[in-house]
Amino acid sequence: MFQLYKKRGFSEFVGDTFEFLKLEGKNYFKNYFIINGPLLLILVVCIYFLMKVYMDAVFSTMATQNPNPNNILNNLMNNIPLFLSLGFVAFVLIILVSLINYSFPVSYLKLIGEKSEITTQSIFNLMKEKLGRTILFFLASLLVFLPIITIVMILLVLLMIIAIGFPLLIIIGPALISWLKLSYYDYITTENNYLKSVGNGFDLLKVKFWPIVGSTIIMYIIFYFVSSIFTMVPYFIGLATIFTDIQTNPDKTEAFSTISILASVVMVLSILSNYTLQNLIFLNQGIIFYSITDEKENISIKSDIDLIGSDSE
Rank of each mutant, 00 (worst) to 15 (best):
T61M: 06
Y28D: 08
V44W: 10
V58H: 05
T64S: 13
I72E: 08
M55L: 09
D56F: 09
I35W: 05
N68D: 14
Y32K: 01
L73D: 14
N31F: 12
L43R: 02
V53S: 05
L40K: 03
P67L: 06
S60F: 10
F29G: 04
M62Q: 10
L39N: 06
P69H: 12
V53G: 00
L50S: 09
M77Q: 14
N70V: 06
L43C: 01
V58F: 09
A63S: 10
L73H: 13
M77F: 14
Y54F: 13
M51E: 14
N75H: 12
N70D: 15
N74D: 13
G37F: 12
N66G: 00
K30P: 07
M77L: 15
L41R: 05
A57I: 08
Y54M: 07
L50P: 06
L39Y: 13
P38W: 05
V58S: 02
M62W: 11
N70T: 07
L50E: 12
L41A: 14
F33S: 00
V58Q: 07
L50R: 09
F49V: 01
L41Y: 05
V45Q: 00
M55S: 02
T64I: 12
M55A: 09
M51N: 15
V45D: 04
M51A: 05
M77A: 09
Y54K: 05
C46L: 01
D56A: 00
L43P: 02
N68H: 02
F33I: 02
Q65L: 11
P69I: 07
S60C: 04
Q65R: 10
N75Y: 11
A57S: 14
M51H: 10
C46E: 05
S60W: 13
T64L: 10
P67T: 03
V58C: 03
F29E: 12
F33Q: 01
G37V: 03
A63Q: 08
N70C: 00
I72D: 10
N66M: 02
K52L: 11
C46F: 01
N74H: 11
V58P: 01
K52F: 15
L43M: 06
N78S: 15
N36I: 04
V45C: 08
N71H: 12
N71T: 15
Y32C: 00
V45L: 13
N36R: 04
P38E: 06
I42S: 06
A57H: 05
